[in-house]
Amino acid sequence: MFAIPAELQAHIRTRLTEDPGAVIDHVARDLGTTPAAVIRCLPPEEARVVDGALFEDVMLACAEWGEMTMIVHTDDVILEAKGCIPRGKKAHGHYNLHGAPIGGHFKYENCAMIAFVSRKLFTSDTRSIQFFNKDGGCMFKIYLGRDEQRNLRSDQVAHFEALRDRLANAG
Rank of each mutant, 00 (worst) to 15 (best):
I71Y: 00
S154D: 14
A91N: 07
K90Y: 11
D165R: 03
T126Q: 15
Y143V: 05
F160M: 04
K141N: 06
A100V: 13
I39Q: 13
Q149T: 08
A61R: 14
D25E: 13
E45M: 12
K134N: 02
K120F: 14
R87L: 12
I85F: 02
A37G: 11
D30F: 00
A162F: 00
I24H: 00
G66N: 04
D51I: 07
V50Q: 11
D30N: 01
R164E: 08
G136H: 07
G137T: 01
G88W: 04
Q9D: 02
I4V: 14
M59N: 04
C41N: 14
V50M: 09
V117K: 02
L163C: 02
G171C: 09
A168E: 02
A61L: 08
P20L: 12
V23K: 03
G137I: 02
F131C: 05
I4M: 15
L31G: 01
W65K: 15
E46C: 13
K141V: 07
E161R: 00
A61I: 15
A37H: 15
R29L: 01
I12A: 01
V27C: 03
G103E: 12
T123D: 11
F2E: 03
L152Q: 06
T33R: 00
D165H: 07
A37L: 06
P86A: 09
I24V: 05
A22Q: 06
L121R: 03
V49A: 09
Y143P: 04
G88V: 08
N133Y: 10
I142D: 01
L60Q: 15
I142P: 01
A91S: 10
H98F: 15
L42I: 02
L54I: 02
E46P: 09
S124P: 02
G99S: 08
A168F: 12
I12V: 06
A63F: 04
D75L: 05
F160H: 14
T34E: 07
E109W: 10
F106G: 03
V38P: 02
S154T: 12
Q149I: 01
D57W: 07
